[in-house]
Design a binder for these strands. Structure first.
Lengths: 344, 344
DNA sequence: GTGAAAGCGCTAACAC
DNA sequence: GTGTTAGCGCTTTCAC
């Protein structure tokens, strides 16, 4: 059967195509009775509006593009992050009857700009969601903005006053984790900083400091180690921290990979987690539930952030106005097995 | 600046829009000289064809949909699989100037059929790539086929004589792994079968049997254990195998998760891998490179399979004929640290 | 080799 | 509330 068109529906319903269009697009000014007639005809013909025609006529593509850093084949941890963002973005798209296009992008490399421009001009998406860390890459942000395509950034470092972004409460939730550790009786709570270039990770350190203060604990330089977000650097940092005469009883790492490194080292040194040492991470990557003991960590609401970003885009298009305030999706503590009350 | 249209280009080049269209679509019957004129105009105006208009007029959406099993939030191992498939599909799409839409799909659940139909009729993709295990779900396959959309299945179990699929050489490569282990001097090579419902896993067992035979080794029922693809089942199987009076010196598991389970048990029992026991897996998931010692395994060419699938779709559309033979993308042995020559 | 005209199936702007 | 009329920017068909 050849696909039914809007004309077929109009004819069958004995109405004009405009009225059918109104019903299809849920526009106002249609009598209930008329609407029903149209809907019956639509059902009978199994009619679906032709997207290409809609797009052409309406100057909207009903497409949202999700752009993220291209994980070159084997970059392991990113897979989970990406899938979760996609999941959220897809959820929002489905609700609003948009489609999601994914566009991994290698931002190192000379022709990012040309490639992005080509994609945008071909696809003409109604909006773009730019995930961290790309949301912090100037060249990428500017290229997209230059096309005039509505852009929402996820977890941008500096906001430049632009409210079109969604973020999480890294600092606050990290302070909460610190307070949680303190509430377990820990007094010597160490922190492993992450890669200095990574902004969220800086906020986490701030949160750690806040948390100490709020718990009435003093900052102790000896308890602060530097990492670079890798498992290996977590191991190195742990080795250093666990050599102190006055051992920490809890270690809070700025990400899960480093926390995993800590657990590995503790195991090698015969230090029992969580009995002798509590370990906490951040991100809630898949590994957090796979290792033993399972890792207490902070859930990054990636899926909800992506969802919120897409919704911002779609909402602002509907209302034809830009959102005037950023969205903050709070993270949550995931208390698992790697943390326990301090032993005496 | 308002976007340039094909008319603008035609006007600037002093030619008809049809000629411009010919150049844009690389059609024949254009004088070299004319082509150059057009290309110059295109460059000057920075013209890009409007996809929506192209789609509407040509009845092609230039969209490929990749459908896979929806990994509900935290289903860990699938993330890597999905990302790799996406990667391959995207590569092919980019080359051919198509866009990729992703569509995770929960095939359990009453309204899969309706949902799939809605998506297909709305989007009207030019082709669909259906990834395993969905490529084996009758209801899903039939629903898609009923819409008339060209479909290529990835790793389908039974082929039903339909050549529109791409697969890998599970059986052959598994026999290669077995021969490799034999070549290291192993004589007692155990095998852990995977989930019985999973077809690839059955082929792997066949390959194991082939490999034994080709190496002049006898099949020994005592050396064959059953798992269900989970880490836990790998542990159980290993425990059983390693209790035999006559220990195996190598264990080949039908997937990496089970192999990881074997390594965990070996560690607990104080059996050194690979010195006292060689362990091999299958799939080359991220974990294979994260555990210690790193796991010898078989790389599943997911990315290349997805790429091949998309190319089949696009090719057959161009030539307006269905491909008449399936594509087989061979897997490859990844020899890492978990296997070594048998100790005496 | 090149071009003119007729749509593709819808939405927008406005009339009624 | 509902209908009419123009396009949207291309591809297709067919004439030249």
């Amino acid at each position: 059967m050849p696909k039914a068109t809007i004309d077929d529906v109009a004819k069958l319903a004995g109405l004009s195509i405009k009225t059918v269009s109104r019903v299809v697009n849920r526009e106002p000014n249609v009598r209930e009775q008329t609407r029903e007639k149209v809907e019956k005809a639509i059902a009978r013909l199994n009619y679906r509006p032709n997207k290409a025609a809609q797009n052409l006529a309406s100057h909207h593509s009903h497409l949202i593009v999700l752009i993220y850093d291209d994980p070159s084949a084997y970059e392991i941890p990113s897979a989970g992050f990406i899938i979760r963002m996609q999941e959220g973005a897809l959820r929002a798209c489905r609700m609003a009857n948009y489609e999601l296009l994914i566009h991994p992008c290698r931002y190192r490399g000379k022709n990012v700009v040309a490639e992005l421009n080509a994609m945008i001009e071909q696809v003409r998406p109604d909006g773009i969601v730019l995930a961290a860390p790309l949301s912090n890459v100037r060249r990428v942000v500017q290229t997209i903005e230059a096309t005039g395509t509505p852009l929402v950034r996820v977890s941008p470092g500096k906001t430049n006053g632009n409210p079109l972004y969604v973020a999480t409460n890294d600092r606050e939730i990290s302070s909460e984790m610190t307070r949680y550790l303190a509430s377990l009786g820990h007094r010597r709570i160490a922190f492993i900083k992450g890669h200095p270039g990574h902004k969220a990770v800086g906020s986490r350190y701030q949160g750690y400091l806040d948390g100490l203060e709020q718990s009435g604990l003093e900052v102790c330089d000896e308890l602060i180690a530097k990492g670079d977000n890798s498992v290996r650097s977590g191991e190195a940092a742990a080795l250093e921290l666990l050599k102190r005469r006055d051992l920490p009883t809890a270690i809070f790492a700025a990400n899960d990979d480093m926390a995993a490194g800590v657990m590995r080292v503790a195991d090698r040194l015969g230090i029992k987690v969580p009995d002798q040492l509590s370990v906490a991470g951040c991100d809630d990557i898949a590994l957090a539930q796979q290792i033993y003991p399972t890792l207490t960590t902070i859930n990054q609401p990636l899926s909800q952030m992506a969802e919120a970003a897409v919704l911002m885009l779609i909402e602002s298009q509907r209302k034809k106005k830009k959102p005037d305030s950023p969205t903050v999706v709070p993270g949550t503590l995931k208390v698992r097995e790697s943390t326990a009350a301090r032993e005496d």
